[in-house]
Design a protein around this nucleic acid. Sequence first.
DNA 1: CATTAGCACTTATATATCTCATGTGCTAAA
DNA 2: TTTAGCACATGAGATATATAAGTGCTAATG
Lengths: 334, 334
Amino acid sequence: MDERQKKLLKEIVESYINNVKPVGSQALCKKFKLSSATIRNEMALLEKLGYIEKNHVSSGRVPSEKGYKYYVDYLMKPKELNGEEMLKLQTIFHNQQLQVSDAIAKCMEIIADITNYTSVVLGKSSSDNTLQQVNIIPLDNNQVIALVCTNKGIVENKKFNISENIFLDELVKTCDIINKMLIGTPIDQVSERLEFEVKPIISKTIRQYEKVYEIFYDAFNDFTKNSANVFFSGKTNILKQPEYDNIEEIKRIVNKFEDESLVKKIEEASEGVNVYIGDETEFDPNVTIIKSKYNINGEEGTIAIIGPKRMEYDRVIGLLEYINKELNEVDEKN
Amino acid sequence: MDERQKKLLKEIVESYINNVKPVGSQALCKKFKLSSATIRNEMALLEKLGYIEKNHVSSGRVPSEKGYKYYVDYLMKPKELNGEEMLKLQTIFHNQQLQVSDAIAKCMEIIADITNYTSVVLGKSSSDNTLQQVNIIPLDNNQVIALVCTNKGIVENKKFNISENIFLDELVKTCDIINKMLIGTPIDQVSERLEFEVKPIISKTIRQYEKVYEIFYDAFNDFTKNSANVFFSGKTNILKQPEYDNIEEIKRIVNKFEDESLVKKIEEASEGVNVYIGDETEFDPNVTIIKSKYNINGEEGTIAIIGPKRMEYDRVIGLLEYINKELNEVDEKN
DNA sequence: CATTAGCACTTATATATCTCATGTGCTAAA
DNA sequence: TTTAGCACATGAGATATATAAGTGCTAATG
């Protein structure tokens, strides 16, 4: 491919991204100050090389997956955010009050909104969280709240009925013991240590120790279960994309958003911002997924944007790179 | 309307609900052992009365909104849940571990799933919650978690940076003061009392009392803000309804789910299970909304099912009545 | 040798026309 | 009161036709 052919490919891809219509030789004439015949010759070559395709023998050309890929890798450069976008995102990142995971979620919500694509946050179980504190808060009528808090400030709470002669003071005593023995324990090991280290001890002093043990066990267990979460925004934004004009296709894709095992696949990503086009996504042949991993302060996960293959690559990549940068700054502050 | 006409209307409504096809005189012949001509005469009357309509001069008949309404009020009786449905819902209600609001949400999720309609839970701010306990949990690196817990066991937490020479012991001291003074205060009055009763007191003993005050103020404020929430399930279930076969209509309705002010309107409902059909919904002329309020243990809100006007009224009403019954039992236990 | 004009050919899209099945209303007979 | 019979209306589907947009190829051009 010589310089002119690259320019041509770039123009074709961008025109198709913007107009959704197959692009023909006529449309490119003026831009390149060449006759349509010349353009046709060049396009025939690009097609032979596999960068563009025809829908039928006399339609205009459409970028192939290979063409999109080449465009992303060599022809496009990430777009800078405009002022408004930057502003919206900055107010989130500079809001000290927000927990990191909430900030990311809010961020992706905004991105789904401004791009009209679908965004996902796949939070990994925050594996290197450690136990910071357990609390028991008594409520009215025989109920207590068990609170678990990690060193990263993630809090989970669970309500229990304590009708069957469990005494509050014994619960609190056990709570103190746990706090003395297990603070600093990685959160995914707490259950185990609770069973093998704490249970033997309380069995000597606590009357209903089995019941008491179960309460704390449940509280911790719930924690680790809840902490693997998926957060979608703009699940129905696909309806705003003009190329999805038949209901069957929309159904197919929207249903995939509900398929847990399929969504989990999105989680895998390498460093930096990665682009997966069509079949590469392993999700759906008619979408592009742009992903990026984050690891802030021990909380890790993947953020992803799902859109048509005709995605505004420069814009989305720019957005994700910007978020990466901001997240790194947050990370370094801590 | 005589008995036969009522039966006819019932048959027409149910046939249309099940088959989505306008129902003609032929189809009803066998069921009523009458000639199609007789049926036609009767249908002409039902149409004159406004219970059924024609799409065009020679199509079969379709129930009008008035027809659906009559069907719901006089012709239909709520359907009992089948074993499977009952089982699914009971495991949720009998799970003591779940908080009420979570149980309701899970419940409605299941209902969206088994009915293929959209469900909404609109939780009202839990107005008669009172403050049960405030906690400060120190984390690493100059951060603390402020925890607020109400007597009904609702917990909210918020992370703060305390870089600017705020001392932990002073935070804890203030926390103790708040716990002594404000426990039992209705949650929506806590902010006010914090300002006018607690602030003057801590101003004498706490050095950075302004900053400390702000932290607690923020924590409470966040609480009241977060507690008004909307929870959708099956937002895209509309895609599964055969009558929504054009994309524009789907777009219109799905977009309305994102329109907060419109969704808020769903909240208003009277006692028991209420049916709003078409224009009555004030949401969209082409949907039916079936709603029911709940008030368990001080937590109140509205649950609603949104579906086509051709909704399986008997089934959905049966489901909501069942949930109402179960929720009442939960309420009485406390 | 790269570029271009010209032309035959292909296909999607839109529109019109026709047929057919389904259903209606009305009249008159049972 | 019910029914048979018939003229009429309409949507759905199939088929035909015209048109616009685009292609590939060949031969002429600078």
